[in-house]
Design a binder for these strands. Structure first.
Lengths: 182, 182
DNA sequence: AGCATAAATAATAA
DNA sequence: TTATTATTTATGCT
């Protein structure tokens, strides 16, 4: 059967302290909440934390793993194991941050100042072509995206994101039509 | 020509205090940074802040406006004007949050003193149905609320508030905190 | 002055 | 974990 997650268990008073394993769920919940706030205060993303942990600690930590810890969508055992790792790492990150933003970024390992990509402006002609492709197939394969990008002379990634956002927009507008205001 | 923004000016020492207008740019920068952290600590999005401000304060505040304030992509004059508004609102939001997450969400999403919604009169039949749902589950999900609202043909927000109030009443009378958290 | 939407981030599916 | 969707933030535009 399913394994219960911290987030589900923590609201059941009788299990606030998991008897056998001696895991304090309330403590974990408190830490997870604080972890998120402290992470954001440092201006770090889940991806950055995951990558930095992967570099300094042994195993791999994905963005999803950090996300799941913060949401407590994780078993008590995993949480118990992950908590000290995150605690130690975060304290260290805060320490470097004290010495300046630059030091933190070096500790984290990312490029010091990764600038946001300039917003792309599609020409009306390009949008027309994109829409005609979208009508035929809203979910093009990687190969198709590459071809469309080449035809329009735009960056492949830009075209990929355009299709993501276009699907999103369609979903949002059609949701209103189909189900009426949620 | 272009108008200089706070974010550009604040790093020029000689202009830390804007002479003529007496605007303390450093203070604004400090506040903007803190505002973001405090907003995230409350778990609020820029959109939510904008909408809430639009409801309680006079003019309209878009998500873009909040975003631009946080990034200081705004003229000193605008920043100076916006700062006290945000400061006051955020302090109030934090105050409500102290009293529980539910209160904060009501403050953010609920109708303010401005054009208050007409008080809804539930029919006895509707109250009966609501109570039967409440007995089964005092804390319905957003989806469940939507469904109940549709079944009874009441506004979704009205139903949501009914559950809030019903829980509040129960809490006040029973003294036993059924819902633990907060 | 803020809408529309591109880009980035978080959450979930596979 | 990795892919992909869903949500949020940021910005080009007029």
């Amino acid at each position: 059967g399913d394994v219960a997650k911290v987030g589900q268990l923590v609201n059941k008073p009788q299990s606030a302290i998991s008897g056998e394993e001696g895991i304090n769920l309330e403590e974990i919940r408190e830490f997870a909440k604080n972890f998120k706030i402290r992470r954001l205060s440092l201006g770090l993303t889940q991806t950055q934390v995951g990558q930095a942990l992967t570099a300094t600690e042994g195993p791999a930590y994905s963005q999803s793993a950090i996300c799941r810890f913060e949401k407590l969508d994780i078993t008590p055992k995993s949480a118990q194991k992950l908590k000290p790792v995150l605690e130690k790492w975060l304290a260290e990150a805060e320490h470097w941050n004290q010495k300046g933003q630059q030091n933190l970024m070096e500790f984290v390992g990312g490029e010091p100042s990764k600038k946001r990509k300039r917003r792309t402006s599609f020409t009306p002609q390009a949008i027309e072509v994109l829409n005609s492709y979208f009508e035929k197939n809203a979910l093009p394969t990687g190969q198709e995206i590459t071809e469309i990008a080449r035809e329009l002379n735009y960056d492949r990634e830009v075209v990929r994101v355009w299709f993501c956002n276009r699907r999103q927009t369609l979903k949002n507008t059609s949701k209103i039509n189909v189900f009426q205001a949620q």
